Computed example of a mutant assay.
Amino acid sequence: NTEQTETIPIVDVEQPLAVPPPPPPEDEWDPIPEHTNVDDFQSVQESKSKMKSLIQQTESLQNKEENFLQVQKALDQNKEILLQLQKQNEYITEALKELNVEQGDRCGPSLSHWVQYRDHCYHQTVEIVSWLECSDLCVSLNATFLKTERSRLMYIMKLLAVNHTWLGLSYKEEDNQWKWEDGSLPSPSLSLPRPSTDFQGNCVYANVHTVGMDTCTMSSSCVCEKPVCAKHSEES
Rank of each mutant, 00 (worst) to 15 (best):
Q200K: 12
S184C: 09
V211H: 04
T210W: 09
R194C: 08
Y205D: 02
G212P: 10
P193T: 13
C216N: 03
N202H: 13
M218C: 01
G212Y: 09
C224D: 09
Q200M: 06
T197R: 11
V211W: 01
S196W: 03
S189I: 07
R194G: 05
T197Q: 09
H209V: 12
V228K: 00
N202T: 05
G183F: 06
P195K: 07
T210N: 14
S196D: 13
C229S: 11
T215D: 14
C216K: 04
S191L: 14
G212Q: 08
A206T: 15
C222P: 09
V204T: 11
D198G: 01
S187C: 04
N202W: 04
V204A: 13
M213A: 05
K226F: 08
N207H: 01
K226P: 00
Q200V: 12
L190W: 13
P188S: 12
S189V: 07
S221M: 05
M213W: 00
P195A: 09
V204W: 04
V223M: 02
H209C: 02
S221A: 15
M218P: 00
P193A: 07
S184Q: 11
M218L: 13
E225C: 02
L192A: 10
T217P: 00
A206F: 06
C203H: 00
C203W: 00
S187L: 01
R194D: 14
V204Y: 04
V208T: 15
S184E: 14
V223C: 02
P193C: 09
V223R: 04
C224S: 06
P227M: 02
H209R: 11
M218Q: 12
L190N: 08
H209M: 10
P188M: 05
P227D: 07
S220D: 03
P188A: 09
S189F: 02
A230C: 00
S187P: 01
G201S: 04
V211R: 03
Y205L: 08
V204S: 03
C224V: 07
C216Y: 09
D214Y: 15
S196I: 12
T217I: 03
L192W: 08
C216D: 02
P188H: 08
V228L: 13
D214P: 00
G201N: 13
P186A: 04
P195H: 08
L192K: 09
A230L: 09
S184F: 10
H209G: 02
K226Q: 12
G212H: 04
C224G: 08
C203A: 15
R194E: 15
S196Q: 02
Q200S: 14
S221P: 04
S191N: 15
S196M: 06
D214E: 15
V204H: 02
C203D: 01
S221W: 02
T197G: 00
S220R: 15
R194M: 13
Q200W: 01
Y205F: 15
L192F: 06
L190E: 09
S219D: 08
P227R: 06
